[in-house]
Amino acid sequence: MGILLPVVAKNQAERRAVLTTLGPLWDGNEVWLLVAGGATFAAFPEWYATLFSGFYLPLFLILISLIVRGVSFEYRSKYGSEKWRSRWDLAITISSFLPALLWGVAFANIVRGVPLVKTSAGYIQYSGGFWNLLNPYALLGGLTTLSLFVSHGAFFLALKTDGEIRVRANKLGQQVGLVTALLAVLFLGWTMLGLTSKGGVIAGSTVVVVAWLSALAANMKGREGYAFLFSAIATAAVVITLFTGLYPNVMPNRTAGGPGLNIFNASSTHYTLGVMTWVALIMTPIVLLYQGWSYWIFRKRINPNQISTPEAGVLDTVH
């Protein structure tokens, strides 16, 4: 939705409507990313260490983006000034674009295998540098997640807004969604070429394709709730498919037979994994429950005309 902002919203009221649909939810959503990072650290410290120090610059760009994105949402509407707002809008678009692209690049590289060496200390370490990460397969992966996230955002926006903006989001979702379908088929096909045991990936890819086509069909009929649900399933299925293809590896070596990371040599001890499993089993349902509740509270569609004085900033006039 951040990427779509300049295209989908034509005026202040519409731009603010887009951001308001995200307002109560974006931070809670982003915590999933943080928890994924923390869980990787706790459960697979070797993988966390190799991945984060190896994919250094892409992760740095993601971090910078997340910093800028978070403050942009909060600060943008403080002033009414066109200059102030358009700068933050640009910041939102760029800082949304970079992570959407780079996650795909990073994941695709993991699936493809990366150059890894064993250090004298016995650690497995990334040895490929930055440019090596920008190979055609990984870039295709990046474009796939970019396009996937843009259409997923468009479905959500069409579900959460009313008026012209809803129509526009619906249309954009359909167009970008078709591009996504094409990219995903190419990407998953290319992924299969590199694998020896294809069973899991074929099954997973089938789910991805069926879910995605269902999303597009639902969107075409204006059933935005189903469109969003199916695109969420497809997105989850992409991640599951890629990890199924990797199993039991988590970060294989590009060169066959070279040192690589798998769930056995990258993981924590049985005890730590046990502790984390219990915490996750107890906490995840509770979190899902109250997060689901917050989605329910803010379920109403937002119409740009509900924003009474869209041009006014909170801090424009001294009381």
Binding site: A39, F41, A42, S53, Y123, Q125, T272
Partner: peptide
């Protein structure tokens, strides 16, 4: 990263 490898089994849990 070397620190993370050394303490990850312990340090990661409170973070997660």
């Amino acid at each position: 990263s070397s620190y993370s490898r050394f303490v990850g089994d312990i340090f990661g849990a409170p973070l997660a």
